[in-house]
């Protein structure tokens, strides 16, 4: 860092007469630009770019953290193992189940809440705060809190169910229910934030458009279908795509609430990467998982950008 600064001073302080000002100022610009970028480059390089490249490299090796010296290049062996790995397949199946359900539930709820709040005059602030309240809790807090509410034996929810005459449920201890519970808790936590974004989108729709459609004789439902929804398209696409990418990265809720169980029914790919790489120290195999699953997410991200942002110029 100091060295680079020295070079920089060299450029600016001593200005040889022979060199044209234009050239030296261009050099100066190069050095300045580079210096301004340096801290970000170091951080992004060390913790994003290099790890990504390392994952790619290690995915072809049998790197075991405790015996790094015995690491050998094994070609596509990890990927062959991975393709026949039942646990990986289960985890991918689980995440697609999660994505498939969370998308309509969370985004639909968010839109519904925004419409409700946008419409009612009295008590809007109270409703807004109530719907938003789960957002202020971290995922760890939310997961631990629901763990207590959903406790099959002594939890609040079963107590309520039994009070209104319904049978108690096993919730997280059932392989059939656990993932749906996680979907519900995640949607419950995230909907309030997206409600605010939808609300901003709704308030950007000019009043005249509604007035015009009323004059044309449209009823509320037609108005919603033909005015509100089309005008909300950019907002909706933004929300849908961020939800999609975020959903693929699910790990904290299953880690805290179910440890991936029961019977791996809530094990997600990122959680599986964590287990093989961190708990079992199989860096090589975990890297192959990273490349495979990270690749899937990247494909989805790029497709989504192509699909959503056709007019992007950067």
């Amino acid at each position: 860092m100091k060295n680079v600064k020295g070079i920089f001073r060299g450029f600016t302080g001593v200005r040889p007469k022979a060199r044209s000002t234009i050239q030296s100022s261009a050099l100066k610009e190069n050095a300045t630009g580079f210096l301004f970028l340096l801290p970000a480059l170091i951080v992004l390089g060390l913790f994003l770019f290099i790890p990504a490249m390392m994952s790619l490299y290690y995915s072809f090796t049998d790197y075991y953290m405790l015996t790094p010296d015995l690491t050998e290049f094994i070609g596509l062996e990890n990927f062959r193992t991975l393709l026949s790995d039942a646990t990986f397949r289960t985890s991918v199946g689980n995440i697609f189940q999660f994505v498939l359900f969370i998308m309509p539930i969370q985004v639909g709820t968010a839109l519904g809440l925004a419409l409700l709040v946008n419409r009612s005059r009295r008590g809007t602030m109270f409703y807004k705060i109530a719907y938003f309240s789960p957002v202020v809790m971290s995922l760890v807090v939310v997961s631990v809190l629901w763990l207590y509410i959903l406790n099959p034996a002594s939890g609040l929810l079963n107590e309520i169910l039994q009070t209104i005459g319904l049978p108690a449920q096993p919730f997280l201890s059932s392989p059939n229910q656990a993932m749906y519970v996680i979907i519900f808790v995640s949607a419950w936590q995230g909907a309030g934030y997206q409600m605010l974004i939808f609300l901003a989108g709704l308030q950007n729709i000019p009043e005249e458009v509604y007035e015009a459609s009323t004059i044309d004789g449209a009823n509320k439902w037609q108005q919603f279908l033909n005015v509100t929804l089309p005008m909300l398209k950019p907002t909706s696409l933004l929300i849908l795509t961020t939800t999609l990418i975020d959903a693929f990265k699910l790990i904290i809720q299953p880690m805290v609430m179910t440890q991936g169980g029961p019977l791996n029914s809530t094990l997600t790919p990122v959680y599986y990467i964590f287990r093989t790489g961190f708990t079992d120290r199989q860096i090589g195999f975990a890297s192959a998982l990273t490349v495979m699953y990270g690749g899937i997410i990247i494909i989805f991200t790029v497709l989504q950008r192509k699909f959503v942002g056709g007019d992007k110029n950067e």
């Binding site: 050095a31 970028l37 790890p51 990504a52 990265k249």
Partner: peptide, 29 residues
């Protein structure tokens, strides 16, 4: 500055890397 376009493009490309999937090699680093 020289390489600005390249670096900016690289940074936009980095946006698609899902940080959660590279935690293992990030840990090694």
């Amino acid at each position: 500055f020289k390489g600005k376009k390249l670096l900016f493009g690289l940074m936009i490309a980095l946006l698609v890397i899902p940080g959660e999937t590279i935690i293992i090699t990030k840990f090694v680093i």
